[in-house]
Write a protein that binds this DNA or RNA. Structure first.
Lengths: 127, 127
DNA sequence: CTCACAGGTTATCAAAAGGTAACTAGGGCA
DNA sequence: TGCCCTAGTTACCTTTTGATAACCTGTGAG
């Protein structure tokens, strides 16, 4: 993420080779983390995820699942039953990601009120 | 983040009261984390940040700093020198956030290659 | 033949994010 | 007076993200 130094301070990069940008730009969208944490509890099917994740549309669920699959976080398995059953599950990589996100989640839970009140104060004092 | 349970599986929310969404939607944009980790090394000035964070424009730097300030992660101090000096520094809240992001950063560094090769494989097999 | 079900895809559109470039403000300096 | 500095703001435009809603596919049941 950071590379050279320049008068004592690090210089930060933002290109496609930056690991943290590659991870955060995937996981930082509207739905990825919700899907990830749903799947932490075990493999699940398309329609079940759609029900569990409130407000997600069919289109965004498909699309986000494809993106997670692409990065190797999620496996997609088709069972040729009838009607067809498609199951999604975390890969070891996806489980590792979820674990390393957990600290952030618990921090967010703990400090949520602080953030919200900072936001209110800022909005009161400014625009 | 998750609330009720429904046949054994948690149901996930995505509204404005969800702590993790409130944090991630702020920090998951293109520049916030780079600014955050720049400021971990100590307070810094507008133009110094602009130099250190490669590719950021004046407009996006101002805007992202304002958003970070709004959520209480960053303090902005104006020194009425000449020419004016404006220093940005992490608040304790911002330092806490950076710390809890660190695990994610090191995970990303460790598994970057894995992600990139998963991506290549997916793109080869599919579109 | 028609309907239902799971798991999608496609078209269309609105909103948000982000980039470029020009302009501004408040001073000091020559 | 004109030019430079820092630290912005503004206008304009393009790209990306996401929402809605309609359509499709394969299969079995009635």
């Amino acid at each position: 993420m950071s590379t050279k130094t320049k008068n004592g301070k690090r210089v930060f990069l933002q290109n496609e080779d930056c690991p943290i940008r590659n991870v955060v730009s995937q996981v930082g969208d509207k739905w990825s983390m919700l899907i990830l944490f749903s799947l932490v509890e075990g493999p699940d099917r398309f329609n079940s995820l759609k029900t569990r994740i409130e407000g997600i549309s069919q289109r965004m669920l498909t699309q986000t699942l494809r993106d997670l699959e692409r990065d190797g976080y999620v496996n997609r398995t088709v069972y040729p039953e009838v009607p067809v059953k498609v199951e999604y599950e975390l890969t070891p990589l996806g489980e590792g990601l979820a674990k390393s996100l957990w600290k952030l989640v618990s921090w967010a839970n703990t400090h949520h009120d602080e953030i919200r009140s900072a936001r209110r104060e800022y909005d009161r004092d400014n625009g």
